[in-house]
Simulated assay, not measured.
Amino acid sequence: LRIESEKYRQWQIKYEREMNQMKQRERKREYEAAKAKRNFNQQLTVYRRKYEEAVSCNKRLQQQLQRQEVARNKKFTDLTDGDRLFKEVKTFLEQELDLVAGTEEARIHCDDLIQQRKELSQQITKLRKRMLKIRDEPPAKRRTGSDRSGADSSDEVVKLQEQISDLESEVELRNTEIRDLQIKCSSYDAETRTEQRWAAVHTTVHAKCALKLMFDMAANSRKELLQSEQQIEELTTKKRDLVAMVNERDEQMSEAKRKFDEERQTLHEHHARLEREHQETVSAVGK
């Protein structure tokens, strides 16, 4: 009887150990699935923010193109009004620079949206494969969901269909914006615009005024660049210090983990020794 009781106890210990391992694997799968979903939702939030930035850029570019169209055949004022001429030339140069910068920014946003569309399409493909896999699984192997509420696998299929529909809407939004940006960027011909840009400059006075303004703009841009470089250098130094601090903390954590593992191993060996002694005592009493 004692032998049968001991066998049952050993079987129960083994069974509970296997069940605990199974539960741990299940929790790990659920955690990884939730983590993947959370990471993708965060990425989708970034995508949407960048999409809104692209929409704003598109609107600005539209306004810049409209101003360019209005100013296409505009002539500078006569030479007798110096202040007015200065303002007109300054406005002209600012509009031209804004248009060049706006077009380049639009191209950057367009490339970014194309990359987003690619990644969203890949995610849609993954979700569809997962949905098909769930549909093709035998009922006995279908999971009921991470909340273990007993919901049928069809609930998970419905959720996947909703996710796919949402992502397809995101892709369509980007398709529309990409087409619009590409049309606007193609309407701005840099070479042709370079030839037309100085058509309004008819006199030496106009040219001198434009050169003075361009020099002032270049000087201000250089100052801003130097200030930005200084800020970047300061931030780089702070980052380097923070990285060194984090590395030091990591080393401390690694050392603490090593000591913890050693103590846990010692405790495990002590527990195993006590278990053996207990088994020997039980065997001795049984005899």
Rank of each mutant, 00 (worst) to 15 (best):
N175L: 04
N58S: 11
C57E: 04
K133F: 05
E88I: 00
L65F: 03
L167D: 01
Q115F: 05
R174Y: 01
F86P: 03
I164G: 02
Q115R: 12
S154D: 13
L79Y: 06
E156C: 04
Q182W: 02
K126T: 09
E105H: 07
T103Q: 02
T80D: 12
K129C: 13
E168W: 03
V100C: 10
D155L: 10
L132N: 15
A106Y: 00
S187H: 08
L97G: 07
S153T: 02
I134A: 02
L113K: 01
F86H: 09
R107K: 10
L85N: 00
L93C: 02
E156H: 07
C57W: 02
D83P: 03
R179W: 07
Q63I: 08
C57R: 05
V158C: 09
D136H: 06
D180C: 10
Q95T: 07
G82K: 15
I178V: 04
K59E: 14
A101Q: 13
D155G: 06
A101Y: 08
D166I: 12
Q161I: 05
R60Q: 07
T80L: 07
L181D: 00
D81N: 13
Q62I: 09
V171K: 01
V100L: 15
Q115V: 11
L99D: 02
R84M: 07
E104P: 04
D111I: 06
S146Y: 05
I183A: 11
E168Q: 11
L120K: 00
S169W: 09
R142N: 00
D152N: 11
E104S: 13
K59W: 07
A190I: 09
S154R: 15
T144W: 07
Q115N: 09
R130H: 13
I183N: 10
Q182H: 03
E170G: 00
L160T: 00
S187W: 07
C57S: 12
D112S: 13
R135Y: 07
L167E: 01
L120Y: 02
K87F: 11
D111E: 13
K129T: 14
D83Y: 08
H109F: 03
P139Y: 03
L61D: 01
F86R: 10
E170Q: 08
E119D: 15
A190K: 05
K75Q: 10
L173R: 13
S149A: 11
D155V: 12
E191Y: 09
Q122Y: 11
P139R: 05
D155T: 08
E96D: 06
S146A: 09
D78V: 03
A140M: 10
N58Y: 09
R135H: 09
A190G: 05
K159M: 14
V55R: 08
D180Q: 15
V171T: 02
I114S: 04
E177G: 03
R179F: 14
G102S: 02
L160H: 02
E119W: 05
Q62Y: 09
K118R: 12
R84G: 04
C185M: 05
N175I: 04
K74A: 12
M131K: 14
A140W: 14
E162A: 10
M131R: 15
E168K: 10
K118C: 12
N175Y: 03
V89G: 00
R60A: 04
R60K: 10
C110Y: 01
D180F: 09
T176E: 15
Q63W: 06
I178K: 00
A190F: 05
F76L: 00
T77P: 06
D147M: 06
E69Q: 13
A190T: 05
S146Q: 08
R84P: 04
